[in-house]
Amino acid sequence: MQVEENTMENEPLSARESLLVIQSMIDKTKTQLGNNSIYFLLWGWLVFIACLLQYFLMVVVQYEHHSYAWSTMLIGVIFSIVYSARTKRERKVKTYAGESMGALWTGLGISFFTLCFILMQVGWQYAFPIYILLYATGTFISGGILKFRPLQIGGAICWALAVGASYVSYQNQILFTAAAILFSYLIPGYLLKYRTAASN
């Protein structure tokens, strides 16, 4: 029975046909989840570039205000607000997973922002291990919500990198952060994007 192609009418069903209808419809709601990859890729690239830029400004150029590299985060904030408002307007379905992802990353986004004020008081020496820890938490939970193992593996790698980063110099912590974002956002983000493309 071609559930996807035929117009559905009210024909009598066999038990196997009923199961096919159920399976087909449940599969169709699963593909709604892949839209999340855009946020992982956007923030993944922004943080990755900011890390390498700060490292370049600090180590190669020896520029005093190397932390200005992080002003690129403003692009992500503006894009995320505009994109989420637009998709919310166009959204035809609300999923439990989508709502959980929204709440999780809004909460973490506020934590990233709040942490800046805390670190201004206590010092930035161990800022990167703490940020990597937040990436690990967000990515691991996202992997659970989306039932997508590469995100969970990325989260687990970040926990190891967070510990490792606390044992190295500040400038090397930047490279640990770039590696963390590669494993937790960029690689799983592309895998999520390709999985969605394949299932559509």
Partner: peptide, 21 residues
């Protein structure tokens, strides 16, 4: 036990809510 009604329920079981479209 009707193809379309079963499809609608199977779609809605996995989401919080969905538009008619």
């Amino acid at each position: 036990h009707s193809q379309l009604r079963l499809a609608v329920i199977s779609l809605l079981i996995g989401v919080r809510e969905a538009e008619f479209t």
